[in-house]
């Protein structure tokens, strides 16, 4: 099993942290993992992305041109990564900030209004966790329970009052993704 995902958005949306959390969780699950960040000058106020690879074998390349999955948190990221996701792969789209529909029909596109969901949950900073939950629900590398448990370990103690909200965000993202999948699978008359 080898799984790779690119998480992309504006700097400040929690793109790098979401990827690190995923990598920590993979390591906790006894798997191999790499986390590779964009670290160019464009990071300051511009776009940020990271690639996470998870495998049960030693990992060669920490980067890929054709990821199995992508989370796109803003429009420039959708434009850049939609064409690159492998056929049959997963694309999680933050529709709160992206008003263009996914054009491809050979990938599993999941529309999640993540900023709105985060606001409903009471903290706009939870957007990344909502989207991560959606990804986990539709891929098989790790479960939301595994990632949630890892969050407890890696989140500094001073932020532990936010654990409940983060767990809720992961769960809500997963729930929305599962509901969307059920809708897609229902035959229309």
């Amino acid at each position: 099993m080898t799984f790779d995902v690119i998480i992309a958005g504006f700097g400040g949306q929690g793109v790098l942290f979401a990827g690190q959390l995923l990598a920590h969780a993979a390591l906790d699950a006894g798997l191999e993992t790499t986390w590779y960040p964009s670290y160019g000058p464009e990071m300051r106020g511009g776009t940020a992305n990271c690639t996470v690879v998870i495998s049960d074998e030693p990992i060669g390349s920490p980067v890929t041109e054709r990821p199995q999955a992508a989370i796109v948190m803003n429009l420039p990221s959708l434009v850049r990564y939609e064409p690159l996701v492998r056929p049959g792969g997963v694309l999680v789209v933050n529709t709160s900030l992206i008003d263009r529909a996914v054009e491809r029909d050979d990938i599993d596109a999941i529309a999640i209004p993540a900023d709105d969901v985060a606001a409903e949950l009471g903290n706009p900073k939870l957007t990344n966790m909502v989207l991560l939950g959606a990804l986990l629900a539709r891929t098989s590398a790790l479960t939301t329970a595994q990632v949630g448990a890892t969050l407890e370990r890696v989140l500094p103690a001073r932020h532990h009052h936010l654990l409940g909200a983060n767990h809720a965000a992961l769960a809500r993202g997963a729930e929305l993704a599962t509901e969307a999948a059920a809708r897609d699978a229902t035959p229309t008359a």
Binding site: Q20, L27, T33, T34, W35, P37, Y39, P62
Partner: peptide, 10 residues
């Protein structure tokens, strides 16, 4: 190189 310096790995 920069990728080894910047990446995280177990």
């Amino acid at each position: 190189d920069g990728s080894l310096g910047q990446m995280m790995e177990g």
